[in-house]
Design a protein around this nucleic acid. Structure first.
Lengths: 207, 207
DNA sequence: CCGCGACGCGAGTATTTGCTCACGTTCAGC
DNA sequence: GCTGAACGTGAGCAAATACTCGCGTCGCGG
């Protein structure tokens, strides 16, 4: 009988006023997350920050978790938009060019509302939405695999799937760290160059 | 006047019985973390799991956070022990050998109580202890930097510090991911080999 | 203009949480 | 064995939290 926790809205807003309300609530949630972190992000505080009654919040969100999940989803939609835009340009590019645009793309992705991104990555305990994030990453994998396989002659990669997984994990790990510690001494341009070197070296292989 | 939150014990256990008590409490905390996650890890539940009065918990721990912090610290002491042991062997090793032992070392590190490790990494919101972890990583950086610089003739690295930072971030990111998703299809031996390839390629450079 | 459903409100509730404190128990030194 | 300090207990408190519900308001089809 222990039903799962709902994260879907309990009522779909139909009139314009209510759709705006939902937007206001979500923006307030993001603000509270930034200001007070996840632990301090209570439903009452969100309602207050939104200038909205707590009852109104529960009209469209079944519980606290669903609020944060929706904020994450919205954020990731933006990220995906940015990434997709870049990915279009790498159809017929050289190895160097392709890697370059990919690295810049991922750096760009992390520049979308970096503070919110940081809080979401850093503080939000792993709620369901994180699986969605990994699933999204996984969605891009076949693209990269295909690209690698179509350039096999220039590369030295025994297992395209493995290489893809490894590269995505590595690059993502690096970016994660850059935007968590933000070592100010770190020049972003240099970082990009080195990341490119890392990827190209690995793909080209050595004897 | 808003004092910082204490994480140091409010009273040092002096007799043997009480020292054992502290140990029991910390082990119970770890168990509860595993079973109920961070959110579900309440002081009352920890006391119950330890078969100990809630009052006894507060005799040695000033608040809930300090419990988790101590668990993290203990865990990391173990990790550091494992890593240090491995690092001793790479004084005068070839590039290939050194990288190999390093990769194995880091894989080994993640095998110490992996379930606890996962919960700590995944669920524990970033409390003070995480900074300690990064500081610890940073502590090993100079070692690697020195090693790189002493092997400069065999390598192609413009900036040793940058390269070190990047490699540690990348490898750590990969391992993080391995032990979070645990894609069972992933052969650990193959992963180690590929990680070595990644590192060696980057350090050797390509034209 | 009317009526009804969607909308918005916020005081209030039930529960949970971290934590205290007054009191009983064990231990070490004499 | 006696004594005082260290230890251990758990009922219970103050505060916070997620969430409800009855009521007033708005807006759209007719």
């Amino acid at each position: 009988m222990a039903g799962k926790r709902l994260v879907t809205p309990r009522k779909e807003p139909s009139q314009r006023r209510s759709r705006e309300l939902v937007d206001i609530i979500l923006k307030a949630t993001a603000r509270v997350l930034l200001k007070d972190g996840y632990e301090g992000c209570t439903t009452n505080r969100v309602a207050e920050a939104a200038g909205v009654s707590i009852g109104s919040v529960y009209q469209y969100f079944p519980n606290k978790e669903s609020l944060v999940v929706r904020v994450m989803e919205r954020h990731q939609e933006k990220l995906r938009a940015v990434l997709s835009e870049h990915l279009l340009t790498l159809q017929n590019a050289t190895l160097q060019q392709a890697v370059k645009t990919l690295v810049r793309a991922m750096l760009d992705v992390h520049r979308v509302e970096p503070k919110l991104h940081r809080v979401l990555m850093e503080q939000v305990p792993r709620i369901g939405a994180l699986k969605a994030l990994h699933a999204q990453h996984a969605a891009y994998e076949p693209l990269v695999v295909a690209w690698i396989e179509s350039h096999r002659d220039q590369l030295d990669v025994p297992d395209a799937k493995m290489a893809t997984w490894l590269l995505i994990a590595a690059v993502d790990g690096v970016l994660q760290r850059v935007f968590l510690d933000r070592p100010s001494s770190l020049d972003e341009e240099q970082l990009a160059t080195e990341l490119e070197r890392l990827i190209v070296s690995y793909l080209r292989g050595v004897t």
